[in-house]
């Protein structure tokens, strides 16, 4: 069962990544697209146990770091998504989280992950960007992620809870 869950999770990350870099640039706002990989990680953190979500966050971040259009220092998205998964897993209550809790978690995780990525860039001087520009990108990214939450999170959470029945029963 655990293996099946990994296969499902990795497939979700790959689909999210490909859609994020090919489809969404056509509707992007000044180049900012919704971070679908982050949504997959948050869905996992809200449904299944925390170690899985943390590892998935790391794996998804690493894929974002290495997949073709990326050219930043590898490990930056891995760090950001691991910490986002940790925070999202802390929010999870034992019962199914309500709609408001899900949206709030996505907004917080998106803000934290994008800011962490931007801050690591400032520290490493990877691309030297202005702080005002970074703030604009972070806020637009949060809006994008929250907008897509109602369409992406429910099916993903159902998918994750179905592949791990011990959690679905509670």
């Amino acid at each position: 069962m655990s293996q099946l869950r990994w296969v499902v999770a990795i497939a979700a990350v790959v689909v999210a990544l490909v859609v994020q870099v090919t489809l969404f640039p056509h509707v992007a706002w000044h180049g900012v697209v919704p971070n679908l990989c982050l949504l997959v990680v948050v869905a996992a953190a809200l449904t299944v146990e925390a170690p899985f979500a943390l590892l998935l966050g790391f794996a998804a971040g690493l894929t974002l770091d290495l997949a073709p259009p990326a050219d930043h220092v590898a490990g930056r998205w891995a760090l950001a998504l691991t910490i986002a998964a940790f925070l999202a897993a802390r929010v999870r209550q034992d019962q199914k989280p309500g709609a408001l809790a899900v949206v709030g978690t996505v907004a917080a995780a998106s803000f934290v992950a994008t800011s962490l990525f931007a801050l690591s860039g400032v520290l490493l001087k990877d691309p030297s960007m202005s702080i005002a520009g970074l703030l604009e990108v972070v806020l637009v990214a949060v809006v994008w992620d929250v907008l897509l939450t109602p369409f992406v999170l429910p099916p993903l959470m159902r998918l994750f809870s179905r592949t791990s029945p011990q959690w679905a029963t509670t």
């Binding site: 490909v18 994020q20 870099v21 090919t22 969404f24 640039p25 992007a28 000044h30 180049g31 900012v32 697209v33 971070n35 974002l64 073709p68 259009p69 990326a70 050219d71 930043h72 998205w77 994008t114 990525f117 931007a118 860039g121 990877d126 691309p127 960007m129 970074l134 990108v137 637009v140 990214a141």
Partner: peptide
Amino acid sequence: VVALGSRQSQSFTVT
């Protein structure tokens, strides 16, 4: 051009 890097990733690269 088949893929564009996102602004969140801060680098302007395409595939």
